[in-house]
Amino acid sequence: MPEFLDDRQAKLNSFRKNVLKKDTSSIPHNIPEGIFVQCEGCQTAIYQPKLDELNGVCPHCGYHSKISASKRLSIILDKNSFKEIDHSMTSLNPLEMPEYQQKLKNATDSTLMNEAFVSGTGKIDGIKVAVGVLDSAFMMGSMGSVVGEKVTRLIEIAAKKSLPLIIFSASGGARMQEGIISLMQMVKTSAALARFSEKKGLYISVLTNPTTGGVAASFASLGDINIAEKSSLIGFAGPRVIKQTIKQDLPDGFQTEDFQLKHGQVDLILERKMMKSTLSQLLKWHKKDGAKS
């Protein structure tokens, strides 16, 4: 009899060790809130850590969900190569717009970022680049004074150090709360790109989901090479505004990356998993002697 019990205990331990610890599709009943996310493409619930491991690409339908600036940099850059600049630049409230400061604080609290744009230098397969990423989680990645200034400074650094420039855009456009000052950032960034281009600098613009408004109508559209990432809404006016204006339904696939490719507005569409290797290849073809570190 004791032999039988020992045997049973051993089998139970083995079951616990080999079966229960393994990844299973059954859902434990004590899941914390928000651990599953719904794919925007196919509506399937996906285990968040799993989606994170897949860099935000849905394992079922291939939809590319939005990712944070830090995640983007970790996917694109060589490990430990990123050196951030202008980290501590923060927004003021030049028009004294009510609730703007609170909105900024909320954005900072939820994203742990000082502003919507992260910039610096880093390496892609050993090639040094000036790189910037807009994060749509921070006030829709909108461009106010800080984003405009940081983008401009990044372009100026790329020009000064003869580095190729790569900017990942994800933005609803100019930041409403800074009004006309936001609008003027469109000129500021575009003018800086004109100077960079005169110095024969390479600028690759990567338009990710979503890239619209004042960001689309300035630096995001001005790449020597414009790349659209899969699953991206790209355009000048938002679909809601267009629908209200023309008072008719929008065609299927309007303002998608395929739409932009078909109408000649972007050079190519890339899946996220191909982004680094493709950028790397493009950088190699444009490598210049004399880049300063």
């Binding site: 790109l193 109508a217 559209s221 309007f254 739409f259």
Partner: peptide, 26 residues
């Protein structure tokens, strides 16, 4: 404002404005 319509988007409204900003600065 610039026209928010289907044809305008198809023909690259964002790119047209962006290009003008860059070129007018030069």
């Amino acid at each position: 404002g610039a026209y928010p319509g289907i044809g305008a988007e198809e023909r690259g409204q964002a790119g047209a404005i962006a290009t003008n900003l860059r070129e007018m600065s030069q």
